[in-house]
Write a protein that binds this DNA or RNA. Structure first.
Lengths: 350, 350
DNA sequence: TGCGGCCATGTTCTTCGTGGACATTTACCG
DNA sequence: CGGTAAATGTCCACGAAGAACATGGCCGCA
C-alpha cells in the first residue's frame, strides 16, 4: 500500500519557497544576482525539504556531472588486491581522491582499464560517453599515454597525470623525488653517518636521475664524498643484492645504505644479516618505498613515504577547480620520511 | 577552432542504421520483438559509431542508473587508510565490488558516511537523491542499522547487508563462520594435534558463537576432548594474552591454539616467545584474521581468510539481479585457510 | 477471395530534473 | 519620466525510455 516515494525536486522547493524554478536553480549554482532575502528563503526551503539536486539531471541540462573518474590499470590493480599486498598505491589514491571529491561535492568512480592498447581507447571512450565525468585522474602507467591524453583533450575533459612531470596537456602532479632523496640522506647525516651508499633505480626511469641528484646534493652540502658509494639496480631483489654487495665490498664500506625500492632494500637487509652485520648497529638501511612488508619486517624499516594521497588530492582539486586543462606548471608535492628501527647512529659514534 | 565534440546519441545510431529511434531503444533494452536482421544492423551501427548510452539520460528517463553505492563507515575507512594498515577489508570489498559491477555494466561509487547518527540519515538521503543508485551495499557497522535499511526500503532501493545473517530486509551476505572454525580445527587435527585450544571472541558478537560451535563440532567429530581448551577474549591484545596464558597453564596445555582475532593471535605469539616455546614446534598458532601484520610477522601466521571480495561480489550480483529486496535467504560464503609457517605437526610426533 | 489478427516497425508525444537563453518586471538614478 | 541594470520569471533543450497508435506484411481460416 506504501506509495512510491516521490523524490523532492527543484519544483517542490520552488513551490515551497514561492519562487520560480530558475531562482532556485540560481541559488543552487551560487549565481550572484539573488537578493539575500530570496536566497535565505530558498535555502530554508531546501533545508526543510531536504532537497538535493540530481546529478543525472544536472548533467543532462549541460552542467557538471560532479563525477570524477580515477583511471587505474586493471591488471596492476587487481594483482595488487588479489595478492593482498602492494595495494598501498591504490589505497592511498582512493583515500586522497575520495575525500577531496567529497569535500567539494563530487563523487569518484574508479575505472579499471586494460593497458592492452586495443581495448584502452574503446574502454575509455565508453566510460566517457556513459559517465560524462567532469574530470579524470590518470595514474601510472596511463599518465603519459598520449592515446589517452589526446582523447581527453578532444572531449575537453580536465585531467591530471599523477606521477608525471612532463608539462601539459593536463596537470602533472608528482612527488619531489630529489627532495625525498635529500631528506633521506640528511636524516642519515644527522645521525652521524659519513659513508652513505645509494642504490639507485634503473636509468630509464626519469625519477632515478632525480633521486640520485638529491642524494648527491645532500652529500655535497655536507662536504661528504660520494665516490664508490653509488650502485644501480633495476628495482628487483636480485639486482639489489648485487648492488648492496658491491657497496659493502667497495673501497669505502658504507655505514648506511639508501635503496630506491622495497625489494632492493629487503635484499640489502638479507645480505647484511648473512654477513653478520647488525641493523642498524653496523648498517643503517633506508627504503624508498613504504609497502606493508617494509613496515612489518624485523627491524621495521625507516622509509620515504610517497605522498600518494596528497598527490591525488591535489590532482582532484586542480581538475575540479580548473576546467581548462591548458598548459600548466607541474605540481610537485614534498615527500616525508617515516623513521623506524632500521636507522640509527653508526656504532663508531656510540 | 576545434569544434566541440558532439557526443554520439541514440539518434545518430538510428540514422546510421536507417531505422527508427524506437527500434534502437528496443535493441538497447533487449526487447524481444526485433528481427535478427534488424538487430544485427543496429548493433553494427552502435559498434561502428561507438555509441554508449548516457547513464544520466537513462536515469532521467526512468530506467536504471547503473550505479551501485558502497556505503562504508567514514572513520573506520579513513583510519585504516591513514594508518596504512587494516585496509584489507575495504580493499577486498572494492576488488569484489568493482569487478562484479564492471562485468555487468555497472559502476560503483564508494560513499563514506559518519556513523554518528545525526548525520547518517541526512548523508544517506543526500547520496540517494544525488546519485539515485540502483542498489546499495551495506558494510559493517551499517549492515544492521535499521535507520538505514528502513530508508532504503522506503526508497525501494535494493540493498545487501554484508556480514549480517539476520534475514531481510535486503539481502544478508555473510561468511560461514562455523565452517571457518571447522576448517581451522581440521587443519590442525590433520597435522596431528589432539589438544587444540580455542580463544573465542566476546559473547555479544553472534559470530563468536558460530565460530565456537564450528570448533566444538570439528573436535567432536574427531573424538577429541574440549574440556579446559576454551578461553574467551574481547578481540583485543590484552585479553588474548590472558586467554592464552589460561590455556597454557591449564589442565591440558594445548599444542595448538586458534585465536579469533589478529590481536589475540599476536598476543598468543608473544606469550609463547616469552615462555621459550617454539612456534610452530612447541605450539602451532592460527589466526582468524588475515591482516598484513599477521602475514609479515615472524613466523608468518596461518590464518582464516575472510572472503570479503566474494561476499561483495555476491552482494552486488544479488542487488543487480533482483530489484525486489523482499525477504530472501541469507547467503553464506565459505571461508578459506591460508597455510603459512605458524602451524606444523606437534613436535611429539616428529 | 476476403477477413481477422498478430508481428515487426515507424511516428509522435510525454516524462524525467535541471540549466541556459531570453523576456519581463522591479527599482533606482539623474 | 526615460534609461538602465538588477532581480526574477517563462520556455525550451538535453538524451533516452516508453506509451499510444498507425502502418504494412503475413498468416490462417472460412
Amino acid at each position: 500500500m506504501a506509495r512510491r516515494r516521490q523524490a523532492v525536486t527543484i519544483r517542490h522547493v520552488a513551490a515551497d519557497a514561492g519562487v520560480s524554478l530558475q531562482t532556485v536553480s540560481r541559488v543552487i549554482n551560487k549565481e550572484p544576482s539573488v537578493r539575500p532575502e530570496m536566497l535565505a528563503r530558498v535555502k530554508a526551503s531546501i533545508e526543510r525539504l531536504g532537497y538535493v539536486p540530481s546529478i543525472a539531471a544536472q548533467r543532462m541540462a549541460g552542467s557538471r556531472s560532479y563525477l570524477i573518474v580515477a583511471l587505474n590499470d586493471r591488471e596492476r590493480t587487481i594483482a595488487g588486491w588479489r595478492d593482498r599486498q602492494g595495494t598501498d598505491w591504490v589505497d592511498q589514491m582512493l583515500l586522497g581522491g575520495l575525500l577531496t571529491c567529497a569535500e567539494h561535492g563530487y563523487r569518484m568512480i574508479v575505472e579499471l582499464v586494460d593497458t592492452h592498447s586495443d581495448h584502452i581507447e574503446r574502454e575509455l571512450r565508453a566510460a566517457i560517453a556513459a559517465i560524462r565525468p567532469d574530470g579524470v585522474i590518470l595514474t601510472p602507467p596511463h599518465s603519459e599515454n598520449t592515446l589517452i591524453t589526446c582523447l581527453l583533450e578532444e572531449h575537453r575533459i580536465a585531467f591530471a597525470r599523477i606521477g608525471s612531470r612532463i608539462a601539459g596537456p593536463g596537470f602533472a602532479v608528482a612527488m619531489d623525488e630529489a627532495g625525498a632523496a635529500r631528506l633521506a640522506t640528511e636524516h642519515l647525516i644527522a645521525l652521524g653517518h659519513r659513508c652513505i651508499g645509494f642504490i639507485a633505480g634503473p636509468d630509464d626511469y626519469e625519477l632515478s636521475g632525480w633521486r640520485t641528484e638529491g642524494w648527491l646534493a645532500a652529500m655535497a652540502d655536507a662536504g661528504l664524498p660520494t665516490d664508490d658509494l653509488l650502485a644501480v639496480g633495476d628495482f628487483g631483489f636480485a639486482s639489489g643484492r648485487a648492488a648492496a654487495a658491491a657497496l659493502l665490498d667497495g673501497a669505502v664500506p658504507p655505514t648506511a645504505i639508501i635503496a630506491c625500492s622495497d625489494q632492493m632494500t629487503l635484499a640489502t637487509l638479507e645480505l647484511a644479516r648473512e654477513r653478520g652485520l647488525d641493523v642498524p648497529g653496523d648498517l643503517s638501511i633506508l627504503s624508498f618505498d613504504d609497502t606493508p612488508i617494509v613496515r612489518f619486517v624485523a627491524p621495521p624499516l625507516t622509509a620515504i613515504v610517497q605522498p600518494i594521497a596528497e598527490l591525488t588530492a591535489c590532482a582532484v582539486k586542480r581538475v575540479i577547480g580548473d576546467p581548462a586543462p591548458e598548459a600548466a606548471e607541474p605540481i610537485i608535492v614534498p615527500a616525508t620520511l617515516t623513521i623506524r628501527a632500521s636507522t640509527a647512529a653508526p656504532r663508531s659514534l656510540a
